[in-house]
Amino acid sequence: MPEDGSTGWYVYGVVRARDRPLAELLPSLAGMDGGPLEAVTDDDLAAVVTEVIIERPRGRRRDLISHSEVLNALAREHDVVPLLFGTVVADRESIVTGLLADRRPIVADVLARTAGAVQFNLRASYVQDTVLADVVRGNPVIRDLHERTRGIPEGTPHPDAVRLGQLVSEALTLQRHGDSGLLMDAVLPLVRDSRVRERADVAHVVDLALLVDRDSVAMLESHLEGIAEDVHDRMRLNLIGPLAPYDFVQEEAWA
């Protein structure tokens, strides 16, 4: 790498450096642009970084995946504070002053809140046809509109079709209220913290970020497997993780 200012340091996140040889902190995988992972330390904190060419824009698929792979690999072994995707700092001194020193209280706060935990994303979606069929059968007005609009070509903004879609949307919203509430009541007692992630499509029920104690992961998985079996005729549950605690960097949820 040239030392003429055309390179900077891509920063993935921050881990605790105490009591561990630096070599043990770093997952054995390549980082951004295939470069090696390095640690920049200040007292008990270490930023995990890769030297990169500054000029090249970040945003390719490979960049996003590299960012998440490194952070998720770190999260499997350590508590980690993820940085926003695309964070490149000019030099190693700036990592120490601008992140590890200046932001120490925030970093320490996130590390404290997420200590010993990992994030899982739980996504529930309806088996669309089953739930829609329930909606049609359960509501005479919708059933009537359904019958009347069957001959209308898709994409035609016929008033009856719009009305049908509106009523179906409202019926699904009501179901979503209830189902997401039931699911959260069953799951949230098993996790340390949670955030509702925004998402919207026809089949969507709820998308949750869960902060889970490492010791509780197996119990959560087993519990969710039971729920997934119980509801499988009308709902699908997908659990993604373990992940770095991306949704728990902010103390409060994003408004």
Binding site: V14, P57, R60, H67, L83, L84, T87, V88, L99, Y246
Partner: peptide, 24 residues
């Protein structure tokens, strides 16, 4: 790509010292 974006985008600590890079 969509999954990864969904997981990481807009998430994470923001620091003042960073060099803004364009995200294509």
């Amino acid at each position: 790509l969509a999954d990864v974006i969904d997981i990481i985008l807009d998430k994470g600590l923001v620091i003042d010292a960073y060099i803004r890079v364009s995200l294509v």
